[in-house]
Design a protein around this nucleic acid. Sequence first.
DNA 1: ATGCCGAGTCACACTCGA
Length: 279
Amino acid sequence: MRIATWNVNSLRARIDRTLAVLERWDLDVLALQETKCRDDQFPLVAFAEAGYEVAHTGLNQWNGVAIASRVGLDDVATSFPGQPGFRKLTADTDPAPSADTLLDVAPPVEARAIGATCGGIRVWSLYVPHGRALGDPHYEYKLTWLEQLRVVARDWAVDPASQVALLGDWNVIPLDTDVYDVADFAGKTHVSPRERAAFDDFAQAGYTEVSREHVPTEHTYTYWDYQQLAFPRNKGLRIDFAWTTAAVAERVRGVHIDREERKGKGASDHVPVILELTD
DNA sequence: ATGCCGAGTCACACTCGA
């Protein structure tokens, strides 16, 4: 069984590359992030013709996460329990006291998490908030989002037989050797101690980051910026990961990072991470 | 060549990403 995660950075712009990834890796399940479309814009037919069912949540042009599967797709959840929301608190988005403000309504939950049971594994496709800058409200949102995910994920992992895979773009650089030059990230998001702790805490919640276990090589990246020849110069980041329960981790026979997918015209800035499991 | 930022929205300049 093969399961992959990929931040596709607009599915409609990269539907051909996506179908090619499914075929090239003979994938059973693909977790996608940043589909950047609403549900009604999702290219369902292309997936169906390739033999995949799809679950998707997308509210607008931002975010959007999906799971495609050819081994079943059950019990779809379009958010995790208690998933925090986010709303900009600026004058232009909220020029006058709105009904929301007056009612103190919780901020909207974004399309950043979707779960489904595929071939006996509870798969989550996750797009962790970026954080934007240290001290930005989005940074606190990111930390709260990760903490709440960890709290609920810990409960999912209590039964030692439970098979759970938390796949996605975590927007955290866990190690100094996961970036071309950590000095370039001084004072920025992705490397701060609080973000790294929020990421590492999934180990205490009963999970193993299996891509590290199988591909420990330093300076192995999953993302390269579009600007300033980052890919040809190999100035990348490792930010796409797979935390799994022990029952999944022991089935992992290999992990592949599809660096080839970053080449050529029309590439996403992220590449797929593929898990090979015993059947 | 792995090649100098891209996508979506919207109306041309902006947001967002990391």
